[in-house]
Write a protein that binds this DNA or RNA. Structure first.
Length: 987
RNA sequence: GCCGACGUGGCGGAAUUGGUAGACGCGCUGGAUUCAAAAUCCAGUUUCUUCGGAAGUGCGGGUUCGAUUCCCGCCGUCGGUACCA
């Protein structure tokens, strides 16, 4: 049989389907191993070559673990709810349920085609009512619980009610929206509505008025992580801050545990840092400042209580609730004016311009609790309402922003920390010696922080405090395509979470679900809203609701009694290896960790963390090529249309791979001159057209070792019928620059040089490279191994097809170990020699180690090395080749299956054991050691493998070559590292 | 600004706890085979060189018998994040 990958692909994929080779038992006597991929949103563009990188890696690992005797759970599903599907529906008129269904089928086909060993009987779809019944149920657990800070865990609301009935809020240490003070009789006196409002203050899923990111364009609020640079991550629409009634999850209750849990999991340092950063823990103190002429004391949070003697003014956020009371009649006009100014600023404006100092004086004064000094109270937008207490004590000597403010308003600056010993130190470094600070004078900063905090506490004017940057998770969206909140309101507007029997609350079928007139689309489904149980909530949940818990559903996907069965979760426990893109590193991981911790608290899951090990694969990008038509003027004043290449005209160097989903920023044209043959130097006036060019029309060449992309004139004619519109468009734009556009090659072909950047593959950028064509041409095994061979898994890399031939050659050579040139099976049962066995076992050791390290690129190279060696040895013995087949099975499943059968076995190679590494084959009689002089290797010498240090040293010194090197110098020292090398210090 | 990652041939990238830098692959050069091409096979391929060697892993120091690896200080690239008090 000759090597024909296309034939093998078809044959064995059918076999696997027919035999359900990858079916996973829910429980087993075998040890479990759970390998999870982040499930995709099924977009209309299908899979591109970037998607499978992580899937192939996790597949190899899963197959490896199966062969090591584990019961492996390796599932796949679809994250089908969310904005993209809905937006697509609005644009095209196709209902999201229809487009999603179609796209999922296509994704599944493509994944099966790549031989990914998913157990499809376990697939989930977040938009399926059978699934989102339980998504709604998971959120009910938030509703039915509160967080007890004393016990550091969630407890049922019923226990909170019992506490309120017995003691009111006395002794209650709960995570809450605001501090409540209520006696037991107060509680008992409350009616249903009143009690509901009190409980809402404690529930882990709660409704409140909060300042949210509102995006008018999308007609919905957005979570903090859905906002980038003051714009919506999806679509780049403007986002404003707006107070609204919203459902939220009380993630702040878990801030500390989410932070500490990071020490117990195997995530990369960078990822842990990102999570920790998002949680944003800081320690410091609250300080209470008396306000002249007022009863209340102003509370501020500071990380530097030691600098309190340097306080010369106070600042409140412009939206702070006390601003009105504190404003004196004389200052009223100024404060009003400033508040109006701030309210008119968008989030983006506020972020972009942080250097401008602005603020207004309220007219009121505070008293410094430690030195009694009278300080003025200002408002300014650099103080944020939502962080700390929304008010600060300003220390202009040690804070850059306070300093700018003080200088601008002519406020006194008092030095309190002598940092002469620490040049360049900032406030955050917390170093220096205290001066002008009363009892703290002479103390080092860390000591002074403790002293100041202690003093505040003693006097009842402050206390030690911990602050977290993380905000509660806004969990409402005013959109259609998501899980409805299963909440109904009675006549008095008291909300009730529907019981499990009444779930799921299904989305009503709607034709038109555009956001309109400031109302959520579901509000228009009036029959649905006015249900027999009461008026329904019309907000839906964000896309993260479904992905928070999907890893649990895979364990037991068809359970109709529970979100996951106890037996299943007790067996599978948690995810051992989680693979996915770095773009989900913060939000998705953090939110599902939150959910898991709640479920742990209430006894639903046995582990504290959902994902033991998390690995982020790098993105595969492709060039995004663009053509630019510019209007330019020549020196004689005549006007021309010219093609310009942004990179070359800007001299901007070689574009690199971005590693996130960020949009590629357009390079500015710094140098506005272009040379055009026959016209001289032209000055570019304006870019008239800027159009992405489909990558398949582009030829890549290399000019001065830099990649260069060219569009040839005749390529336009190759646009097929599907792209008739594009073809016409390109003809049109190309004709506009006709006179001077084309550069002629020697052979007469004409081209335009294109600008390019490396970026994420996307349909809209015309740079999607589809794996199907490559698989059809080289076979799936080759595609899989090539993707792994591209480089380390966690690194971002550009897709390049150059090099795939090398992998293809390797596979054919590997095949050639089993079959001769005429296609006859040619494996002998002769006992192999030592050299052959050494090759194989070197390979077994290397591949086994490297799979464990997820270093798949080096595995491929180990296979190549072994194959090259065995070909040289003309090895064709069964005992050499059979272990190799089992070893390569996770990488090239079709090839391995075929060869395994050819070797005379029944059943699948993927159900066999992993070849055992036997170190004895690597033992050599002699070793070759490098001989170095003063650390520089000169030559090598051979020694018996068991020679000790003294023997080697003696042999080296007796060697003629060594003596020649030494010459007339003397040997000062000889270092012998047995089995490694010899180094001689001569001089 | 802060946090994190990275920097090795023409290119993608290898190098166990510090121990022969450049594995493996691409590309390129030469050769074999062929009427010819493709495919395949063989050899070479860091740079410089007076052909003895010498230098070399972003730059400058340090530790060490020995540094791509460890330490200090820079430079550059990428990613995340930010009036967070």
């Amino acid at each position: 049989m000759k090597f024909d990958p296309t034939l093998l692909d078809a044959k064995w994929q059918k076999y696997w389907r027919d035999n359900e080779t990858y079916r996973t038992e829910t429980t087993s006597d075998k040890p479990k191993y759970y390998v999870l991929d982040m499930f995709p949103y099924p977009s209309g563009a299908g899979l591109h070559v970037g998607h499978p990188l992580g899937y192939i890696a996790s597949d190899i690992y899963s197959r490896y673990k199966r062969q090591r005797g584990f019961n492996v759970l390796h599932p796949m599903g679809f994250d089908a709810f969310g904005l993209p599907a809905e937006q697509y529906a609005i644009d095209t008129g196709v209902h999201p349920s229809v487009s999603t269904e179609k796209n999922m089928a296509r994704y599944k086909d493509q994944m099966e085609r790549l031989a990914l060993s998913f157990d499809w009987s376990r697939a989930v779809n977040t938009s399926d009512p059978k699934y989102y019944k339980w998504t709604q149920w998971t959120i009910s657990r938030f509703w039915h619980n509160w967080y007890d800070k004393a016990q550091k865990k969630a407890r049922p609301i019923s226990e909170l009610i019992a506490h309120l009935e017995a003691n009111g809020t006395e002794g209650l240490q709960a995570a809450q929206t605001e501090e409540l003070s209520l006696s037991a009789s107060d509680w008992k006196a409350l009616d249903k509505k009143g009690r509901s409002e009190v409980l809402m203050n404690y529930r882990l899923a709660y409704r409140s008025v909060s300042t949210v990111n509102w995006c008018e364009e999308l007609g919905s609020v957005l979570a903090n992580d859905e906002v980038k640079d003051g714009k919506s991550e999806r679509g780049g629409h403007p986002v404003e801050q707006r107070p609204m009634v919203q459902w939220s999850l009380r993630i702040t209750a878990y801030a500390e545990r989410l932070l500490q849990g990071l020490d117990t999991v195997d995530y990369s340092e960078g990822l842990k840092a990102q999570q920790a950063n998002w949680i944003g823990k800081s320690t410091g103190a609250l300080a209470y400042f008396d306000i002249e002429g007022h009863e209340e004391r102003l509370t501020v949070y500071t990380t530097r209580p030691d600098t309190i003697f340097g306080v010369t003014f106070m600042v409140l956020a412009p939206e702070h609730e006390w601003v009105d009371q504190l404003t004196t009649p004389e200052q009223q006009a100024e404060i009003d004016k400033y508040q109006t100014y701030v309210a008119g600023r968008t989030e983006l404006e506020r972020q972009q311009d942080v250097k401008t100092v602005s603020g207004a004086f309220t007219g009121s004064y505070c008293i410094n609790p430690l030195n009694g000094k009278r300080v003025p109270i200002y408002i300014a937008e650099y103080v944020l309402k939502d962080y700390g207490t929304g008010a600060i004590m300003a220390v202009p000597s040690d804070d850059e922003r306070d300093k700018r403010f003080a200088e601008h308003f002519g406020i006194e600056i008092i030095q309190v920390v002598d940092k002469t010993d620490y040049p360049g130190a900032t406030l955050k470094d917390k170093v220096g010696v205290m001066i002008n600070s009363g009892f703290m004078n002479g103390m080092q900063v860390p000591e002074a922080i403790k002293a100041a905090t202690q003093k505040l506490e003693e006097q009842g004017r402050g206390q030690y405090d911990v602050n977290y940057r993380i905000r509660d998770l806004v969990f409402s969206r005013q959109r259609y395509w998501g899980e409805p909140w299963p909440i109904v309101y009675d006549q008095d507007g008291v909300p009730e979470f529907l019981p499990t029997e009444q779930l799921p609350v299904e989305l009503p079928p709607m034709e038109d679900f555009r956001y309109r007139d400031g109302k959520a689309p579901l509000e228009r489904a009036t029959d649905w809203v006015n249900s027999e149980h009461g008026r329904r909530e019309t907000d839906t949940m964000p896309a993260t609701a479904g992905s928070n818990w999907y890893y649990l559903r895979y364990m037991d996907p068809h359970n109709e009694e529970a979100f996951v069965g106890q037996d299943a979760v007790n067996y599978w426990q948690d995810v051992d290896l989680y693979l996915g893109g770095v773009e989900h590193a913060v939000s998705h991981i953090l939110y599902s960790r939150l959910c898991h911790k709640l479920w742990f608290d209430i006894g639903l899951v046995p582990t504290r963390e959902p994902y033991k090990k998390l690995f982020n694969q790098g993105m595969i990008g492709a060039p995004i090529t663009s053509i630019h038509l510019a209007r330019a003027t020549a020196e004689d004043g005549s006007e021309h249309k010219v093609w310009v290449n942004f990179q070359t005209s800007a001299g901007g160097g070689i574009p690199r791979m971005p590693t996130s989903s960020n949009e590629v920023s357009q390079t500015e044209i710094r140098d506005r001159k272009v040379d055009v043959p026959g016209l001289g130097t032209l000055t570019i006036q304006e870019i008239e057209l800027d159009r992405k060019v489909p990558l398949r029309l582009v030829e890549e060449t290399s000019v001065d070792n830099e990649a260069s992309f060219r569009l040839y004139r005749k390529a336009i004619d190759e646009l097929d019928k599907d792209d008739a519109q594009d073809a016409a468009y390109f003809r049109q734009i190309l004709s506009q620059g006709e006179a001077i556009a084309w550069t002629k090659e020697k052979d007469g072909r004409e081209y335009v040089e294109l600008s390019y950047v490396m970026g994420k593959m996307s349909k809209s950028k015309y740079n999607v490279i589809n794996p199907d064509d490559i698989c059809a041409r080289y076979g799936v095994d080759c595609f899989r191994m090539y993707e792994m061979f591209l480089g380390p898994l966690d690194q971002a890399k550009p897709w390049s097809v150059s090099g795939i031939d090398g992998v293809y050659r390797f596979l054919r050579r590997f095949w050639g170990l089993f079959y001769d040139e005429t296609g006859n099976f040619n494996v002998s049962d002769v006992e192999p020699g030592k050299a052959e066995m050494k090759s194989v076992h070197t390979c077994i050791q290397k591949v086994t180690d490297d799979i464990e390290k997820l270093s798949f690129n080096t595995c491929v190279s180990a296979f190549m090395v072994a194959t090259n060696e065995l070909i040289k040895l003309k090895a064709n013995q069964r005992d050499v080749l059979e272990p190799l087949v089992r070893l390569i099975a996770p990488f090239a499943p079709h090839l391995a299956e075929e060869l395994y059968a050819a070797l005379g076995h029944d059943g699948s190679v993927h159900h066999t054991h992993w070849p055992a590494f036997e170190p004895k084959w690597l033992v050599e009689d002699s070793v070759t050691l490098p001989i170095a002089f003063n650390g520089k290797t000169r030559f090598t010498l051979e020694f018996p493998a068991d020679a000790d240090k003294a023997t080697v040293e003696a042999a080296v010194l007796a060697n003629a070559q060594v003596q020649q090197q030494i010459g007339n110098k003397s040997v000062k020292r000889v270092i012998v590292v047995p089995g490694r090398m010899v180094n001689m210090v001569v001089g």
